[in-house]
Amino acid sequence: MSKERASFEFTQALRTEADKIIAKYPKGRQMSAVLPVLDLVQRHNGGWVTTEMVSAVAEYLDMAPIRVYEVATFYTMINLEPVGETLVEVCTTTPCWLRGCDEIVQACEETLGIGLGETGADGKFTLREVECLGACVNAPVVRINDDYYEDLDLHRTRAVLELISRGAIPPPGSQTGRKTSAPASGPTTLSARAGSF
């Protein structure tokens, strides 16, 4: 969590992990590994990367630091500022907005006691809005760390966040009980039982 900008070097453990990622790409195409390696370093550092880490990744992958920095600033999944233990990202793009994301933002702000783009003083939560998370069919959607929580409303969002703040991990996915993105009103095809003709 500290904002210290110490110099950074790949540890042996990180090297081993990074080399596994790099090995997935053809020889000489190690630059392709920039996103997974950035993610690796970010997880190692508690959710964010420093400029020194960007430089270290660039050196490890033999590319110009500015090229890694371009990638790191392009993707919102790479954090260049410290974040809380739990990162709550509310989708506010059009489909989620039509399905009531304003209410979700309100629920998050009230439950966590922080506004969009803020981190709590205790360092537990960071709340922010993101662009489309790509789960529009189950809108509105919130991403909490690596999990998607879908089909939310004011109450369900509160319930999820309260569970998390007590240290539990509620089951991810649709919070209305539907399976993945099956129709919200129940199955509309293949509903007949086998052999009933």
């Binding site: 400029t51 110009a64 630091p65 500015i66 090229r67 920095y69 371009e70 600033t73 392009f74």
Partner: peptide, 19 residues
């Protein structure tokens, strides 16, 4: 000299050097 790049995306894109 690979020193210039485009940081950020969309409306937030900026041309910048690294350091």
């Amino acid at each position: 000299v690979e020193e210039l790049g485009a940081l950020g995306r969309g409306e937030h894109m900026e041309i910048s050097n690294y350091i």
